[in-house]
Amino acid sequence: MDLTRLRQVSVPVIPAFACEKDSEAMRRRRVLRKFDKELANRNYKAANSLLKQLQHKPRALLCFDSAKLVPKIINTQELSMVDSSSFESLVDTIMCSIKYSIKFALSDEEVLITGFEDATGSETDNSPYEDHQMCLQHEVGHFLVGYLVGVLPRSYEVPSLQDITQDKFAQGNVQFLGFEFLKEVDINTISSKRFTHGKLKSKENRAKISSQTLNRFLCVILGGLAAEHLLFGYSELLHSDVQKLDRVLRWLCYNENEADSLVRWAILTTLSLLSHHHEARSRLAEAMTSRRSIGYCIDMIESTL
């Protein structure tokens, strides 16, 4: 046989990096399936351990706890937003919404309801589809922000369009690991006014929570509200999130100026995260509306970013 007459066959060369990347993705999905089983059995410690192990593998988990929080002292123009002036306005609007929501929770006066609607631009005649989308994006905001700042979601619930049609006030939720300090916040012993127990009580409560945990909590609790304002330009509010936020800040004995400063910082950070990761937010919304597992949602985020 004349070997010189044999046709040369070109074999595509697959870069080693691509093979390694696919291998890491397969490993991640394999571990996340185990992770889902542990969550289903409520073995939260084991589930958390699996994710931590995966986090230390090269290119396995790149997004969990990857967010760089906005510095506490910053000019909004330093953030890479398309229109910094509209961004400042959005922060002010959310701050206003939070204040009205707290007032609404503390009073049944009709004048507050009128003021609340005027200040937020909230519409009360949304279609069930619009209400469903707002509820969905609210929970997506919680989930995505929590994951990016290093707080592990352990369960979530998003009402279906049919649920919203039958009950306009049907709500969803996302539960996280790592916020055990909330058990210390006894809502039955907190007055409607801000704490005035003095420095001793302030130090006692603040010693129960690290600054890192508080920062993460503030961002996560505001993730839903920020997502609504970012996507729809308003929120119907009356969220338990705002009441929980207020209870925690009062439990920590922050005065109004201190609390406002912390909340404004958390809004800046949360809006920055959600606006920069819009594709992951969109893909996560698809997964959550289909009620996919936590592990699947995590893989969706990792595959997108």
Rank of each mutant, 00 (worst) to 15 (best):
L252E: 06
A67L: 02
V151T: 15
Y129P: 03
V111D: 09
T196D: 15
I164D: 05
E20A: 10
M26E: 15
D241C: 09
R29I: 03
T124S: 09
N126H: 11
H277S: 11
G146W: 02
L3R: 13
G223L: 10
N43S: 12
P12W: 10
C219S: 08
E78N: 05
S275P: 00
A266C: 03
T189F: 06
K68R: 12
G115Q: 06
V111T: 13
L245P: 00
H197V: 10
R5Y: 11
V158N: 06
W265K: 05
A47W: 01
K68L: 09
L231T: 12
I74Q: 09
L161A: 07
S160L: 05
W251G: 03
D131A: 13
D241P: 02
F232C: 04
E24P: 00
V263Q: 01
L218R: 03
V31A: 05
D118V: 04
H56K: 15
L54N: 05
D260F: 05
K201T: 14
L262N: 03
S303D: 12
A285K: 01
H276N: 12
E24V: 12
A207I: 01
K244Y: 04
K34R: 15
A259T: 02
S80T: 08
N126G: 08
R283Q: 08
L225S: 02
M26W: 15
Q166Y: 10
R247T: 08
L214C: 03
L106H: 04
G115D: 04
D131R: 09
L271V: 03
K193V: 10
E279L: 13
P15F: 10
E88D: 14
E279F: 04
K193H: 11
L69K: 04
E123D: 14
Q243C: 11
